[in-house]
């Protein structure tokens, strides 16, 4: 059985594309759209290397592309690792997103296989705090909760987490309360 799906990916309309009805998003991105930045690892929805952002009325939501069917994204708006950087008219990257930049300056990753998933998870967190700021005292817990599903086998997470914290503290309006000590 095949179905036609259409969706918005990184701001661009895609489709209708005819695909097998049970095609997963990871294969759809790789094999039909040549968007190969999404990393396939465990293929059972537990490592979050393949995370994509599915946008909805309540903001972006992380979904594991390996076990999320393309049918779920039919008619929705999706963001992948390819969509974060700013590009010029010819598609060349001119600037990275603040999260990407922070991961580089903090040496957050080594092999980079998990990085697209971390970028997406951190971006969704930053966006959420923009809508619903949290008290400074809760920030570390919020970060850990938001990034806890993402597995990294190289660096031990600390540099990822501090990079995310620095991006959040450097962005106005994401935390409430006195930044120095307990309010």
């Amino acid at each position: 059985m095949t179905v036609n799906v259409s969706m918005t990916i990184n701001g661009e309309a895609v489709g209708p594309v005819e695909i097998p009805e049970d095609l997963m998003m990871a294969e759809f991105l790789h094999e039909y759209l040549n968007l190969t930045g999404t990393r396939i690892s465990c293929e059972q929805g537990v490592c979050y290397a393949c995370s994509i952002i599915v946008d909805g009325a309540e903001g972006g939501r992380i979904m594991p592309a390996c076990v999320t069917g393309a049918l779920w994204c039919d008619g929705r708006s999706v963001r992948t690792i390819e969509g974060h950087a700013t590009r010029d008219d010819e598609g060349r990257i001119t600037a990275l997103s603040p999260v990407q930049e922070a991961f580089l300056t903090h040496f957050s990753f080594q092999c980079s296989y998990c990085t697209p998933g971390f970028v997406n998870a951190a971006t969704v967190l930053v966006e959420r705090l923009g809508r619903q700021p949290v008290p400074r005292a809760r920030l570390e817990d919020e970060i850990l909760e938001a990034m806890n599903g993402n597995i990294c086998r190289c660096t031990g997470y600390v540099r990822y987490l501090t990079a995310v914290r620095d991006v959040i503290l450097a962005t106005p309006g994401l935390v409430t309360g006195d930044e120095g000590d307990a309010a």
């Binding site: 009805e21 049970d22 997963m24 059972q44 929805g45 594991p64 390996c66 076990v67 999320t68 069917g69 393309a70 049918l71 779920w72 994204c73 039919d74």
Partner: peptide, 14 residues
Amino acid sequence: HRLYLGLCAGCHGS
């Protein structure tokens, strides 16, 4: 059926 393929089939199989 669409929801099953979208959210469940990835692990529980088509």
